[in-house]
């Protein structure tokens, strides 16, 4: 199953974020660098959490930031931000977050294979820790099974 594109430009290693909004913004910046989203997409991802709560923290230490398909999305894409200092999202069980994934989906309906591919990576419960400790973008790509272009 195809993972959404995750080029080196969409990977930010050891970044500092003062709070969860800053962490989500970094994942949006990474999607802008890789050409998957426009700058406004970060704000949409933040609004999803403001509206619905910290449910995007889908496993201990891991947030899957995303918004709906829409005009701020250019193409399917994934970004990975590892945080130098873990950040709290306010989740009752899965805080603090060390790894933020940003997900942009251009068209709903065709996205499930892509999300399934993301899910398959994290069914290995050691993957979050490995990504959090990675020291290079290439290492993150390797853990996530991305063939570097």
């Amino acid at each position: 199953m195809p993972l959404p594109p995750l080029p080196e430009s969409a990977i930010d290693i050891g970044a500092f974020a003062a709070d969860w909004r800053a962490a989500v913004s970094l994942s949006g910046d990474a999607l802008v660098r890789s050409g998957a989203a426009k700058p406004g997409y970060a704000g949409e991802m933040i609004r999803m959490i403001e509206n619905f709560g910290p449910y995007v923290v889908i496993a201990p230490g891991l947030a899957l930031a995303h918004a709906r398909p829409g005009p701020e999305v250019i193409a399917n894409g994934l970004s990975v931000v590892t945080l130098s200092e873990p950040v709290r999202f306010g989740h009752a069980h899965n805080d603090p977050v060390r790894v933020v994934l940003g997900l942009a989906i251009a068209e709903s309906g065709a996205h499930l294979a892509a999300v399934a591919a993301v899910a398959n990576i994290f069914n290995d419960s050691s993957a979050i820790g490995q990504i959090a400790e990675a020291t290079s973008a290439a290492e993150v790509q390797q853990i996530m099974g991305v063939i570097p272009s």
Partner: peptide
Amino acid sequence: ICGAGIGSSGVLKVNAER
């Protein structure tokens, strides 16, 4: 069910099927 119907609910679907 999740907020956007693409992220968490997609992950949940895959893992529920598993």
